[in-house]
Write a protein that binds this DNA or RNA. Structure first.
Lengths: 188, 188
DNA sequence: ACCTGAACACCGTTCAAGT
DNA sequence: ACCTGAACACCGTTCAAGT
C-alpha cells in the first residue's frame, strides 16, 4: 500500500505537528529532521507549504470519513455510533493533548491559503453529514432538522475538546459530554 | 485615565492582532508599525513577548468581566442576560471575523508561556462563573448543577464561534444558537 | 527520480548605545 | 525614561549540483 515511504512519513509528521502547533507552527526544517531528510527534499514531494497543508488536511478528513463509515458498518445502533463519535475527539486529547486539525485550522483561518481552507471545510462537511445521517436514524427526524442538529453537535464537541485541551484535562471533555447529554443536545 | 498612551496603543493593537492571528501570529515589527514606533521599543514596555501576551490576555478577561457585570446591573431578567451573552461572541465575528482570544490561545496551548496560560484559564473561569450565576437565577438550579451547565454553554458557544469564523459567515453562529436553544442547551 | 549544501530575502527578537 | 540601529538566529524557498 505504501507507494512512497518518505512522502508517507512527511504527511504523518506534518499531521502530528499541525494538531499541536497548527499550520503556522509547521516548519520545513523541523519536519525534515523528524523524517530524517533535509528541508529542501520536502519540496520534491510538495511544491509549496500550501500544497503540504492542503494534502495533510485532505488526508485528515479522508481518514475520518473512512473511520466513520467503518463505524456505521460495525454498529447497527445509531446511539452507539454517536457515543463513539465523541471518542474520536477524545482520542486526540489522549494522544499528547492534540487538537482536531479542523479546529486548529479554523482558528488560523486568516492565515490559511485558499486550498487549505477548502479542505478544512470538507472536514466539517463530512462530519456534519455523517452526524445528520445517524441522528435521522436514531430519532427519525427530518433531513433538514437533523442537519441543523448535526451542526450543533459538531460545533459543541469541537468546543469541548478545545476547552479540555486548554487545561490538559481529559475529564473536562467527559464532563462536557455528560452535560450535553443532560441538557438534551446529545441523545441520552 | 490613560497614564501611558503608547502602552495603551500597543495593548489595543496586540489584542486585535491576537484575535485574528493568535499569540504565535503576534509580531513585534508589524505591531510597532501599527503604533508608529520601532519594534525594539515595545520591549521597553513589555520585557518579553510572554509579558505582552499575558498582559493582553489579562486585560481581555478583565474587560469581559466588567462588561458582564454591567449587564447584570442593566438587565434584571436572567434570560435577557443569557441572550446578550452570546452577542459578545457574535460581535467579535462582526468585527473582522475575529475569534475569542481565549479560544485562539486555547488552540495554541502547547506554544504558550505559563503566565499566558494562566490568564487564558482566568478568562474561562470568569465566563463560567457568571453563566452559573445567571443560570441559577433563571432556572433556580443548584450551584453545582448550574456550574456544569455553564461550562457546557461556554464550550458550545466558543465552538459555534470557531465554526462560523471558519466559513466567514455570521449566520452560522446565529443558526447554532437557535439549535442550542432547540436542543435544550440554552434556555428558550 | 531523488536528495542536499549553500544562499537569498525575510522576520522575531535581543542588546548595546543613543537621547 | 524612552527609543533605535545593528546584529543574531531562524524560516520558507530556490537553485545548482550531486547520485
Amino acid at each position: 500500500m505504501k507507494v512512497n515511504n518518505i512522502k508517507e512519513l512527511i504527511l504523518k509528521s506534518a499531521k502530528q505537528t499541525a494538531q499541536s502547533h497548527g499550520y503556522n507552527g509547521l516548519n520545513f526544517r523541523e519536519l525534515a529532521s523528524m523524517v530524517g531528510i533535509k528541508a529542501p527534499t520536502i519540496y520534491h514531494y510538495f511544491p509549496t507549504k500550501a500544497d503540504l497543508g492542503a494534502a495533510v488536511a485532505k488526508r485528515y478528513w479522508e481518514e475520518t470519513a473512512e473511520e466513520l463509515e467503518e463505524m456505521l458498518k460495525k454498529f447497527a445502533d445509531p446511539r452507539e455510533c454517536l457515543r463513539r463519535y465523541s471518542q474520536i475527539f477524545r482520542r486526540s486529547l489522549e494522544d499528547g493533548n492534540r487538537l482536531c486539525l479542523g479546529s486548529f485550522m479554523s482558528a488560523e483561518h486568516d492565515d490559511l491559503p485558499e486550498e487549505v481552507k477548502a479542505e478544512v471545510q470538507a472536514f466539517a462537511d463530512i462530519n456534519i453529514a455523517w452526524l445528520a445521517r445517524v441522528l435521522a436514524a436514531a430519532e427519525g427526524t427530518e433531513a433538514t432538522v437533523s442537519q441543523k442538529r448535526a451542526q450543533a453537535i459538531f460545533a459543541a464537541v469541537a468546543g469541548a475538546q478545545l476547552m479540555a485541551r486548554s487545561r490538559s484535562k481529559i475529564s473536562i471533555f467527559d464532563d462536557l459530554m455528560d452535560s450535553y447529554r443532560a441538557a438534551g443536545l446529545l441523545p441520552a
